[in-house]
């Protein structure tokens, strides 16, 4: 159906050849091709998304349970709670470290005695998962926090180690690594629990300390 354009013309349009190297006939054809492409690109460029910023932020709010648009004293603190932080926390550090991190996040300095928080979903902590798998070509993470879908891809960080940072809410989370798509692997640094099907999962406990407060 389509008559192929002289490849030299496409090279000029791609910046791989100078237009001065084209013959006058080629230059006329190039103008036709460029004109049609520009018309099409301009036409497509008028397509606009329906405006999704509000929907995205609402979905984030729904998942975290706290609005990023809250205002006022409480709102600003809630917003600070809601904000994810790049805290390099390892599951192997266990409950104590989790409690310390939660306390660091939740207890503001110099504030009057605050009321206890009841909304653990409003806290997001970035947890670093790490596995030594020097022979792997791909490592993923799945757990109760992903409905066991291997959505988190670990990245090689040198010396055979793979790592990923995952935003998580406080709670008890079971998980496993999936090496090269098929090999479900436990975290050697984490406690193991019965998965109810004759196997085991790794377990991470991210718990808020009793003294955690919001202002």
């Amino acid at each position: 159906m389509t008559e192929p354009t002289n490849d030299r013309i496409h090279k000029v349009l791609d910046g791989d050849l100078d237009a001065d190297d084209l013959s006058p006939a080629e230059q006329r054809e190039m103008t036709r091709v460029a004109s049609a492409s520009t018309e099409a690109a301009t036409h497509l460029g008028r397509l606009r998304s329906p405006g999704l910023a509000g929907a995205v932020m609402n979905e984030i709010e729904r998942r975290t349970g706290v609005s990023p648009d809250s205002t006022g004293t409480r709102g600003s603190w809630v917003r600070a709670l809601w904000a994810p932080r790049t805290v390099a926390f390892r599951p192997a550090w266990g409950l104590l470290a989790a409690a310390v991190i939660a306390a660091l996040i939740l207890v503001p300095s110099g504030e009057s005695p605050p009321a206890p928080t009841s909304d653990a979903e409003g806290v997001t902590v970035f947890v670093q998962f790490r596995l030594h798998a020097p022979d792997a070509s791909e490592v993923r993470l799945a757990g109760t926090f992903t409905d066991w879908e291997p959505v988190h891809e670990l990245h090689p960080v040198g010396d055979g180690a793979w790592s990923v940072m995952v935003p998580m809410h406080p709670g008890i989370h079971d998980y496993a690594f999936i090496v090269d798509g098929t090999d479900w692997t436990l975290d050697p640094t984490a406690p193991r629990v019965d998965d109810g099907f004759g196997g085991e999962n790794s377990r991470l406990a991210l718990l808020l300390v009793n003294g955690a407060r919001e202002s």
């Binding site: 159906m1 389509t2 006329r28 049609a36």
Partner: peptide, 15 residues
């Protein structure tokens, strides 16, 4: 590019 040019010119939108 070739397809777009050919169809536009077939509809009379060319130089």
């Amino acid at each position: 590019r070739d397809t777009i040019r050919a169809l536009l010119e077939a509809d009379g939108f060319g130089p």
